[in-house]
Nucleic acid binder design. Structure first.
Ligand SMILES: [Zn+2]
Ligand SMILES: [Zn+2]
Ligand SMILES: [Zn+2]
Ligand SMILES: [Zn+2]
Lengths: 143, 143
DNA sequence: CGATCATATGTAATAACATTACACATCGGT
DNA sequence: ACCGATGTGTAATGTTATTACATATGATCG
């Protein structure tokens, strides 16, 4: 599905692991998943992740030290990406918002700051998980 | 300067270390700075940091695993805070922007996401450091 | 072809960051 | 004096990421 052309074996394996996962994975979780494929050391994972991030196929979630496959082959070159991360089920929503980008750009220009990488991550509960939690809290009339 | 009332000895020491620092500090750097004050284990630092964050006196910079003293006694209760972090000199600019907050709030409401903590961090070079770098790159005519 | 260079890999060791577990201390309210 | 909430001291362990060095692979050029 993704432009996996030109990926090396290790890179392809790591990307597959992320693509097949429900939510974000830590580097060491990926390593464990790939033991059977010959992976032995963390560096094999980190190196592949570095390359995949360079190619825009994978994102790192800074606030939880984990990685996700990019949900689209869209060009991230000049886009600012935000993530909504559910702490319950692990679901991650990747989105971009031009007004958000505009707004941060305004601040950056005003302060002559030269941005290299911008992180926007909202941690919380997704709609489904928030609903489930509300049910537990409410005086359940299901007796 | 900060409302240090009610802080325990350990908490006060950690806050002082951060207040006196030029830039963000890692937990282990703080530990080293406080060896002479009797600190021996990481947990002493992490516990103090937890409390200080609860009190809004300290912020954690997720993207660089470091901590900074809050620059103001302002109420962070319902504010979204963003950070511009210079990778060269370590300077950190803490700012909030209601439009930014509004914009993320719009997304969150539209997706019925229940936010717990939001991280906004811009890493790059501050004005001074960007200038200094430009000078090195340009064909210096200062010969 | 053989020399060379850039990129990727394998492996071990180590560094950097953070938490768990348990025992003990301190303080305020009853 | 008792209790519960909060804080502390210490050791051990868990988790995340990098450094260092050797080897391999593949494209390019004379
Ligand atoms: Zn993406
Ligand atoms: Zn969820
Ligand atoms: Zn602050
Ligand atoms: Zn700077």
């Amino acid at each position: 599905m993704n432009a996996q052309v030109d990926l090396t074996r290790n890179q392809a394996l790591v990307l597959q692991a992320l693509d097949g996962a429900e939510g974000p994975l830590s580097a060491y979780t990926i390593l464990d998943k790939l033991r059977d494929d010959g992976f032995r050391a963390p560096l094999q994972v980190y190196r592949a992740l570095d390359k995949l991030q360079e190619l825009g196929l994978v994102h790192r979630l800074e606030s939880i030290n984990a990685f996700v496959a990019c949900c689209q082959p869209h060009r991230h070159d000049h886009e600012m990406i935000a993530f909504a991360i559910c702490g319950k089920c692990g679901n991650v929503d990747e989105f971009s918002d031009s007004m958000l980008e505009e707004r941060l750009g305004t601040w950056v220009r005003a302060h002559r700051f030269k941005p290299a990488k911008t992180t926007i991550e909202i941690r919380g509960a997704c709609a489904d998980c928030a609903d489930a939690e509300r049910e537990l809290e409410s005086p359940a009339r299901s007796n």
